Amino acid sequence: MRFTIEPVDLDRHDKLLHAWITHPRSVWWGMPDADVAAVRAEYARIDADPHHHAWIGSLDGLPVFLTETYEPAHSELAAHYDVLPGDVGMHVLVAPPDGPPRHGLTSAVMRAVMRFIFEDPKAERVVVEPDIRNEAIARKNAEVGFVVDRPVQLHDKVARLSFCTRADFAAKDRP
């Protein structure tokens, strides 16, 4: 498996993102009823934000996931924990299967995203804040080394604030 990660290009990816984000399996993404224009507007907003970035991940040339990285100091999370230098916020969405599910794909995507983030020598810790009800992502986060800190009330959810240091990920990273 060979993953590549590139910036979202709305002219190329808007319809793809729309299909992924509005799929019933993507309920945790929070945009189930969005139309293509709303998805474009959201990702144009992210593109304009110097502290937030959206990326398309491909497996052997086929787009299979969306990930976002952001600076927690410039986000709602800054009010909920002491942001440290080297903290990187992350969101990930694996594309709904287009055919039979591929066993192990989500775990491989999680490792690829974490490797991508830690390629930056300034990145020391990854921060996530998934909805506390999303048990599937909690399991995937634990697989790559995230440790749950505590629940926090964000504007749209109760989140499971979790952290993964570079060392925690290195201890869990397996091909």
Rank of each mutant, 00 (worst) to 15 (best):
R45Q: 10
E42Y: 15
I117H: 02
G86A: 02
E119C: 08
E129C: 05
A37D: 13
R111T: 09
R102D: 00
F116V: 01
S26D: 10
A136C: 00
V152P: 11
T165N: 08
D120N: 06
D47H: 15
G86W: 01
G57F: 02
A44V: 09
V36A: 06
P24E: 15
M110V: 01
S26H: 11
L154D: 07
G145W: 02
W20N: 14
D49H: 00
P50F: 03
D98Q: 14
P7A: 15
I56N: 03
L93G: 11
A44C: 07
A48E: 01
E143M: 12
S26I: 11
P100Y: 02
A112N: 04
A167H: 08
V88N: 02
Q153T: 15
R125D: 01
K15E: 09
D131T: 07
R125V: 03
F163W: 07
I132H: 07
P7Q: 13
R102M: 09
L161W: 14
P50Q: 01
R45P: 00
S75N: 06
V147T: 14
R150C: 11
D35W: 07
S58R: 13
V126N: 00
D35Q: 08
M1N: 11
A123N: 03
K172L: 05
A38Y: 04
A34I: 00
Y81R: 14
P72H: 05
R150T: 11
I132N: 00
E143N: 14
A44P: 07
A79D: 13
R102Q: 09
E129T: 03
L59P: 05
R166Q: 01
A170V: 03
H13F: 08
V127Y: 00
W20Y: 13
H52S: 12
P130W: 05
W20S: 15
L62D: 13
